[in-house]
Amino acid sequence: MWFGSDSAGRCGLALLALVLVSLAPAPPVLAHAAFLELRPVEGIAVQGRYDDGTVMAGAQMAVFAPNDPARPWLTGVTDDEGWFRFVPDPAIEGRWTVQARQAGHGAMAYVEVGGEGEAMAAVMLMAGGDEAFSPLQRGVMTASVVWGLIGTALFFQRRRAA
């Protein structure tokens, strides 16, 4: 007898239930293996440096998307070499702002995303400011200001002498 005893009956019911459950459509979250799809994308690497050449290691970075300049789109910290890497969302076109700050020092750089032709173009790196000038230019600029101040001194000295 198949269902002669109570225990055999319970076992059979359980088996039937198991078959029914296995036939029911499984929820998708329980599905199978996971896959990773890798593809190279165009990203931005930015390095923070002080004007004496020291790298800004451990500086706090904030990336601002053009559609919300008030709230950072991404935050992070530069590595030991002062580098910070990110991939802007290509759907948000316009001028992205990257800001580095460390102990009250800081710099800003801009990245143009989208538009015609070039997908991305780093516009300006403004770390410390004066790296844009050659030593000769810096020398002339310094000398001009100093001479202006010495001239002021001489002018007032002469007036006093007169």
Binding site: T54, T142, V146, L149, A153, F156, R160
Partner: peptide, 27 residues
Amino acid sequence: RRDVPKAAMLTAAFFVASLVHVPIPPT
């Protein structure tokens, strides 16, 4: 105006001073 020449000279010194880096490792 008496101290203007002195002030102008020291302003020049102050302006140039920020370009003089004193290396104190690591910065």
